[in-house]
Amino acid sequence: MDKIFILLVLSLSTCASNGYSLKLFSAYIPGEKQFPEFSIVTVLDDIIVGYYNSIVYIPRGNTTNEDDVIESVYINDIIDYMHYSFKRRSYLLTQNNSYEVYQTLVQCELLNTQPGKMIIKDAAGGFTTDELTYINNNFTYFVNASYSQVLLKPHLEEFKENLKKIFYPTCKRTLENYLKTRADQIRSLKKPNVKFVRKANTASGSFQAICLATGFYPRHINLTLFRDGQPVSDHKITGGDLLPNDDGTYQMKKILKISEEEKKENRKYTCTATHLSLDNKLDVKLTDNLDNDHYLFYIIGAVCVVMLLTFAIILGIWRKWRQGGEYDLAEAEEYSSEDEEL
């Protein structure tokens, strides 16, 4: 059930920019279904650490009950509040539409041991309905659903107070506790290997500036492309998806297309990476030397030269060997004729 649920909410997932995160993926499926009506999956970074099946909370990947990690005083109240919230949202949204699944993502972060932001996203039918962000005692909220403002405002203000006084401190403490008890399951920090290369398009004269960061852990990373020291607008950049590697680390690639006209301007491009494993940001410059196609040309040329030299050396050795062999044979025949005369 927890694996199926993770697939359902992947589109809601967000990441801390630099640090560790604790996420609660919850779902409400009204009616008679093969799944529990209300369920929660708890994820520490990339590790599923717990599952609630509408009846009991079950730790995952650990032999202990982890009573010292999850504060039982608050967990039942939080679960009841989330369940009630789902039912209320279901009632409000079904005034205009009927949805099969309602989902919520709750995420809190620790950035270099300092508390980070808390994010709460709600979705219905696979689409985000509203999102609330809390950081440094400030709230940011947007709604993308046909909620009545008269009904929404009292509940929103109440929720803000609960988040500030209960949800946020509880999530932060739980994350800190998990980082202690699950330390052996969390991978050690891995620094990103960052390359900033260009790929030419000979037909149009343009090229792509490709920034690839790979081999890093944890998965939270920021890649920023700069032109002459100024950040490039996001709408001009493609890529940015986080992908897993076979060894448990991650990779991310961002691409900027540079036209033939921009290419002539000789601007300076830089890819900057920030990651928990790095003491300082990592700046990688786009080389102003030859494009990949030219590199390939010279590599092929060098290989051909080496092959020709190798062939010449082998041919020279063979000729010397053959000449030496013919000389020895003639000399042997001469000695043989002299013996016969004797």
Rank of each mutant, 00 (worst) to 15 (best):
residue 1 M to F: 06
residue 1 M to P: 11
residue 3 K to D: 10
residue 4 I to T: 11
residue 10 L to P: 01
residue 14 T to W: 02
residue 15 C to T: 12
residue 16 A to N: 01
residue 23 K to M: 06
residue 29 I to F: 08
residue 33 K to M: 11
residue 34 Q to L: 03
residue 42 T to W: 03
residue 49 V to Y: 13
residue 50 G to C: 04
residue 52 Y to E: 05
residue 56 V to H: 15
residue 56 V to Q: 09
residue 57 Y to V: 09
residue 57 Y to L: 06
residue 57 Y to F: 13
residue 59 P to T: 10
residue 66 E to M: 13
residue 67 D to A: 01
residue 69 V to E: 00
residue 72 S to T: 01
residue 72 S to I: 04
residue 73 V to M: 12
residue 75 I to Q: 10
residue 75 I to E: 08
residue 81 Y to W: 07
residue 81 Y to N: 09
residue 82 M to L: 14
residue 83 H to N: 13
residue 85 S to R: 15
residue 88 R to K: 14
residue 88 R to A: 07
residue 90 S to M: 10
residue 91 Y to W: 13
residue 104 T to G: 11
residue 107 Q to H: 12
residue 111 L to W: 01
residue 113 T to A: 06
residue 113 T to L: 05
residue 114 Q to P: 00
residue 116 G to N: 08
residue 117 K to L: 01
residue 118 M to I: 07
residue 119 I to D: 04
residue 119 I to P: 01
residue 124 A to P: 05
residue 129 T to C: 05
residue 130 D to N: 06
residue 131 E to C: 11
residue 131 E to G: 12
residue 134 Y to L: 12
residue 134 Y to R: 01
residue 136 N to S: 06
residue 138 N to C: 05
residue 138 N to T: 14
residue 141 Y to P: 08
residue 144 N to P: 03
residue 148 S to K: 14
residue 150 V to K: 06
residue 151 L to T: 09
residue 153 K to V: 08
residue 167 F to R: 08
residue 169 P to G: 12
residue 170 T to F: 11
residue 174 T to M: 07
residue 179 L to P: 10
residue 180 K to H: 11
residue 183 A to L: 03
residue 200 A to Q: 02
residue 201 N to F: 01
residue 201 N to W: 02
residue 201 N to H: 11
residue 201 N to M: 11
residue 203 A to M: 06
residue 205 G to L: 00
residue 209 A to N: 04
residue 216 F to T: 09
residue 224 T to L: 11
residue 228 D to V: 10
residue 228 D to P: 06
residue 229 G to A: 14
residue 229 G to I: 00
residue 231 P to H: 00
residue 233 S to D: 14
residue 238 T to K: 13
residue 241 D to V: 09
residue 241 D to W: 05
residue 245 N to E: 11
residue 246 D to C: 04
residue 248 G to N: 15
residue 254 K to Y: 01
residue 255 I to R: 05
residue 255 I to P: 03
residue 256 L to D: 03
residue 259 S to A: 12
residue 264 K to A: 07
residue 265 E to I: 03
residue 266 N to H: 03
residue 268 K to D: 09
residue 269 Y to T: 01
residue 269 Y to R: 00
residue 271 C to S: 05
residue 272 T to L: 15
residue 277 S to K: 00
residue 278 L to W: 05
residue 280 N to I: 03
residue 283 D to S: 13
residue 287 T to W: 13
residue 288 D to Q: 15
residue 289 N to P: 02
residue 290 L to C: 02
residue 293 D to Y: 03
residue 296 L to R: 12
residue 301 G to N: 02
residue 304 C to V: 10
residue 306 V to W: 12
residue 311 F to G: 04
residue 321 W to C: 07
residue 323 Q to K: 14
residue 324 G to L: 04
residue 325 G to W: 06
residue 328 D to G: 08
residue 332 A to R: 14
residue 334 E to P: 00
residue 335 Y to R: 15
residue 339 D to M: 10
residue 341 E to L: 14
